[in-house]
């Protein structure tokens, strides 16, 4: 979907208002869930107990956790429904679908990091790192929702399922929470804040815009599609900028 409208001078519109709001919503609910949830997981730590007492006690911490969980469930449901509708009826480009290229890109990049390849992988709207994050959080989030509901209504669930489901759900909920927390705390925070590519902060999800320069380096395939130019032209353009940078520095 070549779309000249999205290019505004040196900036390119990357995220719609809806996605910006969605990110804020997920960010805030995630924050609350992490604080109320991990403090329960690591309940013996002083900081956890301090947090829980600040929230007014364990009952309130659990209450807040559960109802924020419902908000998270709603956000996730809306996201999935809109995604399905968009792809099915509005002919959106399913840009998050994992393809074989993502695996070859990952290998290519590791080779590049090790100095075997001369340049990084050429990626589309979302690179393999972003896809990994997205699916990690989405699948993990769904697991959290399912296991969370099981833990919230154990007597109801055990009417249909064996009792062992409950401790299994607890083990999964608590471990999956750690997985998601690690993906966000390590991977997402690095890639969007500390990575030299974006440092001090990747603002695109807040402003909705990304610089053309970053599009050239990070998402050349999408840029080519947007500008309706062949990919090779974009790459040479990128290399020119690259050399210019090298000369000036």
């Amino acid at each position: 979907m070549a779309n000249i409208d999205r290019i505004k001078g040196n900036k390119i519109r990357r995220f719609s208002i809806f996605r910006i709001i969605e990110h804020w919503a997920v960010m805030l609910t995630f924050g609350v869930l992490v604080v109320t949830g991990l403090s329960q997981k690591f309940y013996s730590l002083d900081v956890s107990q301090w947090l829980i007492f600040k929230m007014g006690g364990i009952d309130y911490a659990r209450l807040v956790h559960r109802f924020t969980g419902i908000v998270f469930l709603l956000i996730t449901s809306i996201h999935i429904i809109i995604g399905i509708i968009g792809v099915a009826f509005k002919k959106w480009h399913p840009s998050m679908i994992i393809s074989k290229k993502d695996f070859t890109d990952a290998i290519h990049n590791i080779k590049y990091y090790l100095g075997i390849e001369s340049r990084p992988a050429i990626c589309d709207r979302y690179n393999y790192k972003q896809k990994f994050e997205y699916w990690g959080i989405l699948i993990g989030g769904l697991l959290m929702i399912v296991t969370g509901i099981i833990l919230w209504f154990p007597t109801f669930i055990t009417r249909f399922l064996p009792g062992e489901i409950i401790p299994a759900a607890k083990v999964m909920h608590t471990n999956q929470a750690l997985v998601i927390f690690l993906i966000i705390a390590v991977w997402h925070i690095y890639n969007s804040i500390f990575s030299p590519d974006v440092s001090p902060l990747d603002t695109s999800i807040f402003t909705g815009y990304i610089s053309k320069e970053r599009m050239l380096t990070e998402h050349p395939i999408e840029l080519a599609r947007l500008e309706g130019k062949p990919l090779e032209e974009i790459i040479t353009e990128h290399q020119d900028i690259h050399y210019e940078n090298l000369e000036t520095s």
């Binding site: 154990p154 401790p167 299994a168």
Partner: peptide, 27 residues
């Protein structure tokens, strides 16, 4: 089914609570 939700003071093992044990081991 509900009482089985409590592992009766047993640490999960392959024998006592296989599902819990496997899920935990994977993580």
């Amino acid at each position: 089914n509900f009482p089985a939700a409590w592992l009766s003071h047993y640490e999960p093992t392959l024998k006592k609570a296989p599902l819990v044990f496997i899920v935990n081991s994977i993580y």
